[in-house]
Design a protein around this nucleic acid. Structure first.
Length: 570
RNA sequence: CGGAGCGUAGCGCAGCCUGGUAGCGCACCACCUUGGGGUGGUGGGGGUCGCGAGUUCAAAUCUCGCCGUUCCGACCA
């Protein structure tokens, strides 16, 4: 591509509302332009990257035996009512009405549509298994779209759905997709990790998320260096290997006039924060109060808590509710001698503690030397309700956990019969009986991958694309082509030769100053560049520099294309 | 949904408090200049100051309403 024939429109400044680096850089380079909140136009530059990601995903899905289809983006209400999701999906579902007054939604995901397709197409077990996928724009009316294409309302997604006669078939395809996803992210050139994920309301027996590792990621992941254990912190089990020691102290009230947090209290008393217990007041589904106890340095895991009986819709208590129910201001509440009998849910770690410190249920005081059984009854419920932290024991017993951040770019699910059952999607089995099919679903956020790739690969000058998804593989920058005919001719010849050799080349024929060409090439993140200058030509060389390299190197002009091929191969 | 901020040229911003001819930088156009890290200069084009009402002789500026947009979301004791 000749830059003079392309459309490149870079900015020196990024819009003030851009928050994350990928968003800033995508807007500065003009890869995307915002039309409305969470809705973007992909420019020629941006679309090149998006299409490359899409291409790799498509190739690997095809290779795995999945069959591409294209479903409508708009689906009728009736289909969504079959599964109950018309109402269940909530405000995220963009609904619309046609001229006849019939209601539709813009698909945020396609289980209903594909299951309808499958129940009409698949009549015999002999047609199974099948895996249908599509790559298509989805729309989810996010409460707070942000981070550019990382959490847009409209986004490009690859969604696949597999159909099986039995669970064993589903498990096989699930593994096939898991392996396929690993190949896809490896080919994309991204550092990623597959983690066990919460199956949420969808249920089913298995689910993994694929995350691109980046410090700006929204999800925390727990993984073990010594084994293959990896899970979203949302669901990683917190192990407590400790057993409770006998009490050695007597319970005593201590003055903590301003210390409302565990770390402040620990600092005041000169003790390890691990000897403190914090109490979180929550309101249960039945509107009754409960007190959740976790160690001072731990945090409550909302998802784990919500899975406990009666806690499905729990919420944190308001300050007013705490005052009313506990008779104490927040900051000093605790499980000992509360005003009313309140259900106490203790994390396993807390249950194994002795001689600990907690709020005294009296403003400006805490208690120390507190022990279960003696100073307060054993908790009503002991459960894993905390988030794992760095250094915790791995649930598989093979080492300790580390925590890292990631961006969820893929999710594989064993759906089981949930949708097939609701929509009566059956095939005849070899006994000539109708059998409800088993389903799996497998998603990849194609447009999100573009953002995630930038979050993982940038520096102060701009983006740094993995070669597989770079908008261009190499740029040819002629120095002073406006005055030097020999440079102009040589650059053109090199451009032709590289193109013929199959490279995706960008020739900067704008007659711009060197600084402008360098700045744009680096901002756009083209992984390789070759500078053609008069001095070099006299010596028979061109100047090569990789986007991450500190120094450029001179390569004999005659050997350059072969040299670059070798570099690509390596 | 609740709270807060913002809305002035394509982008980044000033002006608003204290009402009186709408500005700056980048980008864009023309000419000159420069030519290996976003040259320097001269001259230009482009804005119903988010929309609507009100106050006033006069509103970007003050008041009210609406719309859009961005951020934060309780107190994890």
């Amino acid at each position: 591509m000749r830059l003079s024939q392309f459309h490149l429109n870079t900015y020196k400044e990024s819009p003030s509302d851009a928050e994350v680096m990928s968003q800033k850089l995508m807007l500065r380079t003009g890869m995307i332009r915002k039309l409305s909140g969470g809705i973007y136009t992909w420019s020629p530059l941006g679309l090149r990257v998006l299409r490359k990601v899409e291409g790799i995903v498509r190739e690997e899905m095809d290779r795995a035996g999945a069959l591409e289809i294209l479903m409508p983006a708009v689906a009728p209400k009736e289909l969504w009512e079959e599964t109950g999701r018309w109402d269940q999906f909530g405000a995220q579902l963009l609904k619309m009405t046609d001229r006849a007054g019939r209601e539709f939604c813009f698909g945020p995901t396609h289980e209903e549509v594909v299951t309808d397709f499958a129940r009409n197409e698949l009549k015999s077990y002999k047609q199974l298994p099948k895996n249908f996928y599509q790559i298509q724009m989805k729309f989810r009316d996010e409460i707070r779209p942000r981070f550019g294409v990382m959490r847009g309302r409209e986004f490009l997604m690859k969604d696949a759905y597999s159909f099986h006669l039995d669970e064993a078939g589903l498990v096989r395809e699930y593994q096939n997709m898991f392996d396929t996803y690993s190949r896809i992210f490896t080919r994309l050139g991204l550092k990623f990790r597959a983690v066990q994920a919460d199956t949420g309301a969808i249920g089913g027996s298995g689910s993994h998320e694929f995350h691109v590792m980046a410090s700006s990621g929204e999800d925390a992941l727990a993984y073990c260096e010594d084994s293959d254990f990896a899970a979203n912190v949302e669901m990683a089990e917190a192990i407590c290997a400790d057993t409770r020691l006998a009490a050695t102290q007597t319970m005593e009230k201590v003055s903590t006039p301003k210390q409302t947090t565990c770390s402040d209290v620990a600092a005041l008393l000169g003790i390890d924060i691990k000897r403190t217990v914090k109490a979180v007041a929550v309101v249960r589904t039945d509107n009754k109060f409960a007190l959740v106890l976790v160690r001072g340095d731990h945090t409550v895991n909302d998802i784990k808590l919500s899975k406990l009986s009666g806690m499905a819709d729990f919420r944190l208590a308001t300050e007013a509710e705490i005052r009313e129910t506990m008779g104490c201001v927040p900051g000093f509440i605790g499980p000992v001698k509360s005003k009313l009998p309140i259900m106490v849910i203790s994390d396993r770690t807390v249950a194994a503690m002795s001689d600990f410190v907690c709020g005294a249920n009296e403003a400006k005081f805490h208690l120390q030397g507190v022990n279960f059984g003696r100073d307060l009854p054993e908790a009503d419920l002991i459960a894993d309700v905390r988030n794992v932290i760095d250094g915790d024991l791995s649930p598989d017993g093979k080492g300790v956990l580390s925590i890292a951040r990631g961006i969820e770019v893929g999710h594989v699910f064993q759906l089981g019969q949930k949708y097939a059952q609701a929509m009566n999607a059956t095939v005849l089995d070899d006994q000539q009986k109708a059998a409800v099919m088993y389903m799996g679903c497998y998603g990849i956020g194609v447009s999100r991958i573009v953002g995630a790739a930038i979050e993982q690969n940038f520096d102060e000058r701009g983006m740094i694309w993995p070669a597989a998804i770079a908008p261009f593989y190499i740029s040819v920058l002629p120095m002073n082509a406006h005055t030097s005919e020999s440079v102009k001719v040589a650059a053109e010849a090199l451009y032709q030769e590289l193109s013929a050799a199959g490279f995706d080349v960008l020739l900067d024929d704008r007659n711009a100053r060197a600084g402008v060409m360098f700045a744009d090439q680096e901002l756009v993140g083209i992984p390789h560049r070759v500078v053609v200058g008069e001095k070099g030509l006299d010596a028979g060389t061109v100047e090569y520099k990789g986007r991450r390299d500190a120094e450029s190197k001179n390569i004999p002009r005659a050997e350059f294309v072969a040299w670059l091929k070798a570099l690509r191969g390596a």
